[in-house]
Design a protein around this nucleic acid. Sequence first.
DNA 1: CGAAGAATTGACCGCATTCAAATGCGGTGG
DNA 2: CCACCGCATTTGAATGCGGTCAATTCTTCG
Lengths: 241, 241
Amino acid sequence: MDAIISRQDAETGGFSNTKFDAGWQISFEADLKAPRVVEARVASYPPRSLIVDEGDETTNVYEVVEGGVLLFKLLPDGRRQIIEVLGVGDVFGLAPNGVSDVGAETLTKARVAIYEKRRVDADTALRDRIFSRLRAQMCALHDHALLLGRKSAQERVATFIMRLVPGRGGHACSGPLGGCDETHVDLAMTRQEIADYLGLTIETVSRAFSALRRAGTIAYERQDRVAIPSVCQLCRLTGSH
Amino acid sequence: MDAIISRQDAETGGFSNTKFDAGWQISFEADLKAPRVVEARVASYPPRSLIVDEGDETTNVYEVVEGGVLLFKLLPDGRRQIIEVLGVGDVFGLAPNGVSDVGAETLTKARVAIYEKRRVDADTALRDRIFSRLRAQMCALHDHALLLGRKSAQERVATFIMRLVPGRGGHACSGPLGGCDETHVDLAMTRQEIADYLGLTIETVSRAFSALRRAGTIAYERQDRVAIPSVCQLCRLTGSH
DNA sequence: CGAAGAATTGACCGCATTCAAATGCGGTGG
DNA sequence: CCACCGCATTTGAATGCGGTCAATTCTTCG
């Protein structure tokens, strides 16, 4: 594995303080405010590198410190489902029986804090922090189950893009600030990754993007950067409102 | 709400000690061995009654003590997705912001232990037990995301039935015991509930059941009771093996 | 500029949905 | 016991959305 392991004592964990609302919006950037004193091994990975594989024995708990991480599962015939897209502060590696039920792969260049089981067992404060984050991630999984089970391709893609707009689309959506309702978002994921996340094929994702573009709901600034003239208009296509 | 509230001090919580493997198999029956001393309010509900609704304010944590509970989400136009089917020992009501992100409804007659937030905050042992169970339930959600995103209708239904066979279909599947590989399972859920759980329509679920029946993979003992001549044969249709 | 990979677009197909009708099942009352 | 009713389930036929296969275009990078 091509991870660069470094030991960091009393280092800033760098947790995002972005408000998560049922898992919406992701922050891949560490917020350097509110540093926490944590003794942990931190591993650095290049983009698209495997951290743990499905079925690996691990009792470690992992926390994303910088960058993005994908959790995925595979079927024997190669079908892949991306289960969750993790940002800074999110945790994984919590399968109860010491065998990872999902694979974890970096989406971007990423740093991941690794906590050994005995440390998690001993440290109540750490455990509580993991617990708390796990609750938020569980809500994201609930939302995603609704998307996978009941939403159309259009709605899935619209939901996906909305997920990348900070502070919007959740239950407590602030609405447009000061009349202006345009933004742009970075996709960070390839079409294939988006497809595997949304339970679609790459072609269907592409078609849905194109349809949104033709309708004027989005525009491409670059291939991986989308302009949204009216967030509310996009939000109406998610099926959630 | 038609719950019968009772106060039970130092009562047996009655937790199932069935081994859960990534959320597979459900036990709606409390195992009375290994009683735990718990002070908690316990509410009793008739079948199909609402415990909490999506959007309700609750800081309580709930634990299923007897029976089965469904967690679900709705879209504004009425589409419903059942997120998770809970058995004895499973917990819910853990949305991080005090507003439930899912509705919870009893599947069968059920009893549910209710822990207030301040009690969960104060009691480390309780919190750890909830945490531990949450980890198992998260694995079940991961599996279900794979099902919803990537499996065919046939595979979903086969997976659903396998989920009801104790000790089989998981990663550490024991295989048939002593050559004999037949069982029967109680469905407990209506076709509509199964459809909402599997992200299908009621007709598609019915057709999948019929196809399995025609193929001899299952047989009806009653409408809600399925005989499985060969568990392994059914398991091969889940797409997971 | 050229090559390799990613994304888009098009044509066609198949699976699941939709709409509709028939059948089966459980309960109530005669 | 049996007839009847209401509801769940099953089955059938037609439609359509998303998948599959294939060709083209766009991007990136050497």
